[in-house]
Simulated scan of single mutants.
Amino acid sequence: MSESTEQVQTADHLWREFRQEPFPDSLRHVTFGGTDVWLIEFDIAGCVVRWLDNGGALDSENSILLQSRIEDLDRVIPEVDDPVGAQYCRQLRRLALLVSRPTRRCRQRR
């Protein structure tokens, strides 16, 4: 199995697990730096779905958005007082980081 295939499969598995978790009530009306936490999750989810649909690739616009949302989570996570909300944000960040890593495509030898 190629490294890129394994990365996509891992992300798909994490995405399926993540989708089973409800959005924590403690984060529903929380805003950090002028951005609602639910919007950070929404943007990351969109990027993850696009990445999975494209076999591990994101266009530059979505790559920039994803990186920006990872930075938002880096600021949000230390401020979340609720353990459930913090864990939810850490899982979201882990998934976003996996998707933001470039996949390595196998090259055929000539």
Rank of each mutant, 00 (worst) to 15 (best):
L73H: 02
V76L: 13
L65Y: 00
R16H: 12
F18L: 09
I40C: 06
T5V: 14
D53T: 03
W15Q: 08
T5E: 15
T35K: 15
V84K: 09
E41H: 14
P83N: 04
R93G: 03
V48M: 04
D25T: 14
V80P: 02
T10F: 10
P22W: 02
R50W: 04
A96M: 05
V76E: 13
Q67V: 03
W15R: 08
S63G: 15
G55T: 08
A57D: 10
V8N: 08
D59E: 06
D74W: 00
V37Y: 03
L92P: 08
S68H: 08
Q20N: 15
E21M: 15
E71M: 04
R16W: 01
F23P: 03
Q20W: 09
L66S: 02
L58Q: 04
G85K: 02
L92N: 11
D74S: 05
R75V: 07
R90L: 06
T10R: 15
C47P: 04
G55N: 13
L97D: 12
V48L: 05
D43Y: 11
A11N: 07
V80S: 02
G33D: 12
D82L: 09
V48Q: 02
P83S: 08
P22D: 14
A45P: 00
F42N: 14
D59S: 02
G34S: 06
G46W: 00
S68Q: 09
F42W: 12
S4V: 07
